[in-house]
Amino acid sequence: MASRISSRTRPDDVGMHESCLVLRDVAIAYGRRVVLAHVNADIPRSQVVSIVGPNGSGKSTLLKAIAGLVPLADGEITLFGQPLSRSRRRVAYVPQREDVDWGFPVSVHDVVMMGRYPARGWLRSSTRADEAIVQDAMAHLNITDLARRQISELSGGQQRRAFIARALAQEPDVILLDEPMTGIDSATHDRILELFEEWQSHGKVVLQATHTHIHGGSMIVLRRRADPIAAEDFEHHAAEAGEHHEHHH
């Protein structure tokens, strides 16, 4: 299904078992409010990690910190041993709906092509190779027939597909998605889950901030310290998900 995409991934240039994304003692603060502290994670390749937790626990904030949108108050984040700030090109980020100006006049093709800018250079015209990657990414998300449509004319699910196609066109090692399952149709939901598995099998790391219930898979569970009931609730989910995981093996 993903022959052309997979042929471009490079699972061999770094060992499969080596740590890919490492968060060391990460702390995030807004002004004088410390949102999160002492976050440690050592994520190898081929992982789909869900950042879960109740509202206001900092799911989106942590994801934004990994994306470089929120400065770290302490600690560091590295990708293949390099500071993440130096490997931005290897990270694709799919923002939350609210962060995008949907009325801006760009076509679906324009949006997906934006994924090629960082690698190609922002001042240079797209090449045939870029065009092929963009076509491939759109075909992958089943939006080829929407290529010339304005992003404003699309449904929420189609817009999400366009943004995920953009992430695909970036050919990243790490894909960060902020609430990717919110406000979409079930076909898009299923397609995104398939794509997660595909990315996983190609050695990539997928991180999603989500408030939907997750069955199985890796998780970063955030707890609000002022809110012990919600924290227990999510511990319960985590335990349940763990059991679920074992049943399958």
Partner: peptide
Amino acid sequence: RLFVMSSFDPSGARAMGL
């Protein structure tokens, strides 16, 4: 291209290092 990207999707633009 930079102006379009940073106007349309400022978060995505910053994540790309713009």
